[in-house]
Computed example of a mutant assay.
Amino acid sequence: MHRVTVTLDDDLMNKLDAIIAARGYQNRSEAIRDLARIGIQQTTSEDNGENCVGAMVYTYDHSKRDLPRKLTQSFHNHHELSRATMHVHLDHDQCLEVTILDGKASEMQHFADHIFSERGVRYGRLVTIPATGDGHD
């Protein structure tokens, strides 16, 4: 292990301490190691072409003209990435979908960007994790 000194402003330190308390970390070092792993994974998985699994979560207005058809067509065009989808009706107009993806991180991000940019999609987020390894040393 290496010892590293990092200077954080008060606001960032307060946010870090809140995460530590909420998630039950034993100390700041554990929390910072986990956050570093997450940051490294997010910045490198797209660049190195590694296989990942992911969850694409988004909400959309199903009453928007042609949106459900466009979304379905996009999924058919990317069938090699999509493994399963859960669809939830939030209210009369809003739907939530969660799709499990499997493939190269860059391809999943490209697909997610396409879905999220459709008119009527209100919120979207893609979370990816490496398909192998546990991420802990």
Rank of each mutant, 00 (worst) to 15 (best):
N27H: 05
N27K: 01
N27W: 01
R28E: 05
R28D: 07
S29Y: 02
S29E: 04
S29N: 02
S29Q: 05
S29V: 01
S29H: 02
E30A: 12
E30H: 03
E30V: 05
E30M: 07
E30T: 02
E30N: 03
E30C: 04
I32L: 13
I32C: 03
I32N: 06
R33M: 09
R33F: 07
R33H: 12
R33E: 14
D34I: 13
D34T: 06
D34W: 02
D34L: 12
D34Y: 04
L35M: 13
L35Y: 04
L35C: 05
L35H: 03
A36F: 08
R37D: 11
R37A: 13
R37P: 06
R37C: 09
I38T: 07
I38G: 00
G39I: 10
G39C: 13
I40T: 08
I40L: 15
I40D: 04
I40H: 05
Q41R: 02
Q41A: 15
Q41H: 02
Q41L: 09
Q41E: 15
Q41T: 11
Q41P: 01
Q41S: 13
Q41F: 04
Q42E: 14
Q42W: 03
Q42Y: 02
Q42M: 12
T43L: 06
T43D: 14
T43P: 00
T43Q: 12
T44M: 13
T44L: 14
T44K: 08
S45R: 08
S45Q: 09
E46G: 15
E46W: 00
E46K: 10
D47Q: 15
D47H: 14
D47C: 10
D47L: 15
D47E: 13
D47M: 15
D47W: 10
D47I: 15
N48M: 03
N48H: 07
N48F: 10
N48Q: 08
G49R: 08
G49A: 11
G49E: 08
E50T: 02
E50Y: 00
E50F: 00
E50N: 04
N51L: 12
N51R: 05
N51D: 11
C52P: 01
C52V: 14
C52M: 05
V53A: 07
V53R: 00
A55H: 04
A55V: 11
A55Q: 02
A55P: 01
A55G: 04
M56R: 00
V57W: 02
V57L: 15
V57D: 05
Y58D: 01
Y58L: 08
Y58I: 07
T59P: 06
Y60I: 11
D61A: 08
D61Q: 07
D61Y: 03
D61G: 05
S63T: 13
S63F: 04
S63D: 14
